[in-house]
């Protein structure tokens, strides 16, 4: 993962109006490399955003999937409830849960990548 040396240099392309705005003296990536307080703060914000997203998905999973056994205990009539000829637990656990996982996974990937893009825009805009 070495980043030094070859490869085309990045060239700053901005409109005249952008040039007029105030810029930080150092790019934030250098703050991160030098582990300054500012760099650490940026890193913590990224890690926290990603963790919050991940734990959010886990919590949703815990409530929906983890809640099912409890639901079947509290409402025993649901255990044998007929849904289109099949008992409800089978419809949920042998069918619907799988597309649910995929939808949830895709949603997570979109948001995790957005977090990373936002972070990259934030720290990289002046290099």
């Amino acid at each position: 993962m070495s980043r030094d040396g070859e490869g085309p240099r990045r060239v700053l392309v901005t409109s005249p109006r952008m040039r007029a705005t105030r810029r930080p003296r150092h790019p934030v990536t250098r703050e991160i490399d030098e582990q300054t307080g500012l760099g650490e703060a940026y890193m913590r914000s990224l890690v926290r955003a990603q963790l919050r997203l991940g734990l959010g998905v886990c919590a949703a999973l815990g409530v929906v999937v983890g809640g099912l056994p409890l639901l079947f205990v509290l409402a025993p009539e649901l255990r044998g409830l007929d849904v289109g000829g099949l008992p409800l637990p089978w419809v949920l656990l042998a069918g619907l849960v799988y597309p649910g996982f995929v939808v949830c996974g895709r949603w997570y990937v979109r948001h995790a990548e957005r977090n990373e893009r936002d972070f990259a825009d934030l720290v990289d805009r002046d290099t």
């Binding site: 997203l53 991940g54 999973l61 999937v65 637990p89 656990l93 849960v97 996982f101 996974g105 995790a112």
Partner: peptide, 20 residues
Amino acid sequence: ADMLWLPVGWTGGYLVLLVL
């Protein structure tokens, strides 16, 4: 029906793996 949880967990494990 209790055993339906096995494949659900074996798949759902990848969702946890994905996000964490």
